[in-house]
Design a protein around this nucleic acid. Sequence first.
DNA 1: GATCAACGCGCG
DNA 2: AAAGCGCGCGTTGATC
Length: 577
Amino acid sequence: MQLSYVKSSVEARQHAAELANQPVLGVDIETTGLDPLTNRVRLLAAATLSGRIVVFDMFHVSWDSLQPICGVGWVCHNASFEWRHLTYAGLTVPPLHDSMLLDRLVSHHNRKLDEVAADHLGLQLDKTLQVSNWSAPDMRSEQIEYCGADALATVRIAQELLPQVDKAGQRRLYDLWRQAIPMLAGLTLRGQSFDWDTHSKLIDKWTAEKKTLTQQLQQHLGGINYNSGPQIGDWLKENLPAATLKTWPKTASGRLSTAADTLELHAKQPMIQPLLRYKVVQKLLSTYGLGWQKNRHPVTGNLHPEFSLGMTVSGRLACSKPNTQNPPRLTEFRQLFVPPSGQVLIGADFSQIELRVAALLSGDWNMLDAYRKGEDLHTKTAAAIAGCAVEAVTVEQRQGAKPVNFGNLYGQAAAGLARQANLDYGVGMTTADATQALLKFKLAYPQLEHWKRQHLGLAQQQRQVKTKLGLVRDFDRQHEGYLRGEAQNMPVQGSAAEVLLASLVRLPAALAGTDAVLYHTVHDEIELACSPGFADRVAAELRGVMMQGFLDVFPEGEALTHKLVDVKAGSSWAELK
DNA sequence: GATCAACGCGCG
DNA sequence: AAAGCGCGCGTTGATC
């Protein structure tokens, strides 16, 4: 290993010129903090496959002297991090490989660089310096070597794993992930503009309501902590008749459950309604009120959620700090998601994407037929359950078919279906009704049923299932007996996620010549921000991109694009019409 | 004080 | 709560 530590721009240019002849470089950076907007890159290490390492000290080297090495391919571990910092620093970052994503595809797990290096290279990386002082005036030699060693490990891991990804038939998925990196990193860097003034008024409102509810609960439950399940459980034990307690649902560890579902079962008790409302308001206030404020960026004032690839078992995107993929659907909250001033939001979502994916994966003739004809699958299922013509299905019957369609996909049983129907769809359904509905569903869509059995078998025998583009989920001993839902869900949810990613990566080309940028994405939807003058064009492009994204993953689905994408425009996330 | 598991709940 | 799946985050209470 030959390492050079570079502290001047003149020297940096010479090294950069040499490195620019390489086919690929491993690149690792050390920064003074995680946020590119408030921190600086201290070290940038570039390593060649032959073991030549150059560590640039970016406190002393100008960014433009590194531009030559941007002409070659790079490998980083968790490349989104490097993309954000280096793009913010002004570098034109080349297409990136990602050793973390390669390892995710090969190992089927999420692992840190040291674990990956140990596994694939037999190399022990010491990570104790990761949190050392990267702002110090002088870098210690250990720090310089640490950064260089990571860069070298990264490029060697990629050399090892890329052929394996090819061999496993995962190259398309890997390239899709690679292309998505700049899209998602760019979204995190720009952030999401948010109406904090109105948000603060919402907090005041929730705070006042919590106070009222606390006073009401004081009458019923006394001075216990209403956030505490154990304390509420103790109160129940002391105040409810033994007969009621006997059948009261328990948590996994044997305590009395205090979940909303459970409390609903005893809705007649006088303290239940205020307690249920308290839980709602407490959730809003803690997670979406006060907790949310912590994510207001000091420089931009925006939210800057991280969108992570490869972190989920199904291949969906993970979103955190904050998770803007799960804000309440309340109009008053989603209204706070606004485009930058003077712009509009264009939003689109896939209609019933998981059901369409299930139809294509299973080849179920009746499901495919419904989507080909642009029929409504909920209505079709309702007709099958009622044993009547599609034309005769009532609004109520259609509503009752929704939970059957969704729940059945993942092996939901009768009791669960009945509960879900009552709770989330307002449909009065007994367990016996649910049993009948599930039976009718199986008869109506026989190939889907066959496909589900097949995947349960794959999970049991080969201990793994896959998405359309080849992401693998393994099942270990822990899943014994409990893997039906996971086995049937993963290929559907994961392939749907691939459809979304395929759409996202088509955006840059489609939006060229407009000022539209990605504002948000939530599993089956995409929001863009643009000037009003571009709105119509952007809306049309977004529809086209999502249709094409669907066809990229499911070329055999040409006939299923009817009513596939629903595009809307508006002044906030709540007002997309 | 920091960390962890358990619980509960927001979304698609 | 329960044999629908996938996430992230806040609070409590135990532990060191």
